[in-house]
């Protein structure tokens, strides 16, 4: 694995007892817990990564929730509703994990709706057809699971525990997407076209979910040294493609990469060139739906303000009431 990279300790300055303890815990593959001493950089990286991850779950609800009211059967409606609801739960678990590091959910939400926080670019793509529910489950949740399973062992305890819970729930997400596509591919000509068109649109963005190539990924090395991250971007991407190829064959869909071929030497599927300019465009806010996604989150948050305030005010009144009653009784 990756222990050739040393944590960011300065070789010239003697390190403190706490820092030595921290390094020992990381080295021993143990976990860092909320009240432990940790380097400021470690805390910051974690807050950044966990909150971005939480935002992705929350924004990620939108492209799919668009189809809840139009799902083509009652069974699919129930499945989709349960799936999107799970994503709300995932966002919530992750905000809680970040909260143990001193970031509040209110602050993180404010940063998100102010457009100051990042989330996974994949959710800035539109979902024009029902087949997109299949592609999102199969490709987007699939890529997310690939990324997330190793995170169950992240060195920060609350993050790892949230990921364990999330991965358990994710297990049905990819399958339901795959089965949507399977059903479409076994259907009418129109349905098959719908499925293939959707796979064409989601395949490359899904591969980009693993992040930039390793030699262009500034934070990766440190994250791996700290065992927040366990595998490199390219590594995970390769594993994902290796899994997709036989699955695509079962579905009968074509993966839209003419250069995709099996490498007899490495026993892996070599993929064609990824167009990173598109990735950077979407990341920079110039994707198809960036503005719309943020606007909807902002609307939900602002329109919910009076409800959250009402419940908080009610709680204060009830508290005051019980305290008065208790005082009167004593």
């Amino acid at each position: 694995m990756t222990s050739t990279i040393t944590p960011d300790t300065s070789a010239t300055v003697a390190i403190s007892v706490e820092e030595q303890q921290f390094n020992d815990l990381i080295e021993a593959d143990s976990r860092i817990e909320p009240r432990d001493w940790m380097p400021e950089g470690y805390r910051k990286s974690l807050v950044r990564q966990i909150s971005q991850h939480a935002h992705s779950e929350i924004i990620g609800m939108q492209p799919e929730s668009n189809w809840i009211t139009r799902a083509p059967s009652l069974k699919r409606k129930a499945i989709l509703m349960a799936k999107v609801q799970d994503e709300a739960g995932h966002g919530l678990y992750l905000y809680s994990a970040a909260q143990t590091l001193g970031a509040t959910r209110d602050d993180m939400t404010d940063a998100l709706i102010a457009g100051k926080a990042r989330y996974s670019s994949i959710f800035n793509y539109p979902t024009p057809t029902w087949a997109d529910m299949g592609s999102i489950g199969w490709l987007v949740d699939g890529a997310a699971i690939c990324n997330q399973v190793p995170l169950c062992r992240a060195s920060y305890g609350p993050y790892g525990r949230a990921m364990v819970r999330i991965c358990k729930e994710e297990s049905f997400h990819q399958r339901q997407g795959f089965e949507i596509l399977l059903e479409l591919m076994a259907g009418t000509e129109e349905q098959r076209e719908m499925a293939q068109d959707s796979v064409n649109r989601w395949y490359w963005p899904a591969l980009m979910m693993f992040g930039p190539p390793d030699d262009d990924s500034p934070n990766s090395a440190q994250s791996m040294a700290w065992k927040i991250k366990r595998h490199s971007n390219d590594d995970l991407r390769q594993r994902f493609v290796n899994m997709l190829v036989p699955q695509a064959a079962v579905l009968g869909v074509t993966l839209p990469d003419p250069d995709l071929h099996f490498n007899e030497v490495t026993q892996q599927w070599d993929l064609g060139e990824i167009d990173w300019t598109e990735f950077h465009e979407v990341l920079a806010g110039r994707g198809p739906n960036n503005a719309q996604r943020l606007q909807r989150r902002r609307d939900a948050h602002e329109e919910g303000q009076w409800v959250r305030e009402a419940a908080a005010a009610y709680a204060r009144k009830q508290y005051a009431l019980t305290t008065t009653l208790e005082m009167a009784a004593s």
Binding site: I58, M61, Q62, S65, I68, T69, K77, A78, M81, A82, V84, Q85, A88, G89, G91, L92, Y95, R296, D299, A300, E303, G304, Q305, V307, R308
Partner: peptide, 21 residues
């Protein structure tokens, strides 16, 4: 079902989702 992703707080997205399901 139309509330999911639009509720006043995330906990309520989940609660309304359960009722709808």
């Amino acid at each position: 079902g139309a509330w999911i992703s639009r509720a006043p707080e995330l906990e309520e997205d989940v609660a309304l989702g359960n009722v709808a399901l």
